[in-house]
Design a protein around this nucleic acid. Structure first.
Lengths: 196, 196
DNA sequence: CAAATCTGGAACATCAGTGTTCCATTGAGA
DNA sequence: TCTCAATGGAACACTGATGTTCCAGATTTG
């Protein structure tokens, strides 16, 4: 057989091809979830046959895609250091980090069924880390205590998605959009009684 | 032929069947744009053959769907009487009216290519009525003058979508979600310097 | 160089969705 | 009751996506 070895190496030609396919899949599927494997292969600059060697079935690709996206999201969460400083600042940092995910963000927002998180009874929402952050914000007085936590999560993701979409189809540069988003975020979630 | 007469009557069995198909299409496609015609027909309680009599091709159904959705959106805009009273109140009224569109809202948000609006160079945003409303809000001092109009539009729709999604997968009753949304809307778009 | 590996194109069977035709049944109105 | 529009099921051809196999060329490695 001419199967690429199953070693999960992080370098070498196999890993590079795998990366190219995953990236192309994110890019393509974020615009159209029902895009064909042929289109993805073309975007990846790879033959359809080769793609089938790395991901025998479409579902295999989707699973790998999900794992990869989750990894990126988790990395963003870690970089944001949600436990440091005032909750409002942590929320802003998280927003910046997630905004950088770009197409991955778009893909996840439009296909929440991909998000694994924790499979128990979690149909689409309630991210423990976000919940904790909002509760901390209520405690330290930097986030609006009147906001329902579930609703706040929904709005947070929607704002993020809105920012990415706006960056896509307005000619405004990304960093400007991000700044608009951060100001809106602060205004929307900040505690009006306290400073910011 | 057993084609339903082409008269665009608003009553009678033909209109009723047509309505049932359009409603089923909105409901089904809002959850999955690539749903098959068979599924739509089943939801509509109609044979696939009958559906092909009303909408010969998939594209015909999509066109009719778009027209129907646009009609509902326009009706919501009219009911909101955007020109009456302070701009902030008008924005709240519009939010309430659009929220009632439910699945139609969801479908349009996820498939902005459906929105006709005005086909010239309008790829996905810039609704003249909304622009005018935000500008009026800047003039009468009830809406935040620092918000970019295009960004504000994007956030407005995202907020609306977030509310509908939250209504779908949280067990909170719709009117509660709507109230949360309206409060967030006021906080996000209101002019902090002035009352509300 | 020689062997092993990786690649991509071609050909193929399969399958689901689509669009069409035909026909038997239903139901409302003349 | 008779008629005719409307319906829905069955059967069919067609298409595009999918998954598989085979092979020849390219690249890497010994």
């Amino acid at each position: 057989m001419s199967q690429p070895s199953s070693a999960p190496a992080t370098s070498g030609p196999r890993a590079r091809t795998r990366r190219a396919i995953l990236d192309a899949a994110v890019s393509t599927l974020s615009k159209d979830v029902s895009a064909s494997l042929g289109e993805i292969a073309k975007v990846a600059g790879v033959g359809r046959t080769t793609m089938h060697r790395y991901f025998p079935e479409r579902s295999d690709l989707l699973i790998a895609l999900t794992a990869d996206a989750d990894e990126h999201v988790n990395a963003a969460y870690e970089r944001a250091r949600l436990a440091d400083g005032p909750a409002s600042a942590a929320l802003s940092r998280l927003c910046q980090e997630l905004f950088e995910l770009g197409e991955t963000l778009q893909l996840l927002f439009n296909n929440p069924q991909l998000l694994t998180g924790t499979p128990w009874e979690n149909d689409s929402e309630s991210d423990p880390e976000l919940v904790q952050l909002f509760e901390r914000g209520r405690a330290d007085g930097t986030l609006d205590p009147e906001l329902d936590v579930d609703w706040a999560q929904q709005v947070f993701w929607a704002l993020l998605y809105a920012a990415w979409m706006h960056a896509l189809d307005s000619c405004v540069p990304k960093h400007t959009v991000l700044n608009q988003c951060l100001r809106t975020l602060t205004k929307t979630f900040g505690n009006a009684d306290q400073g910011s």
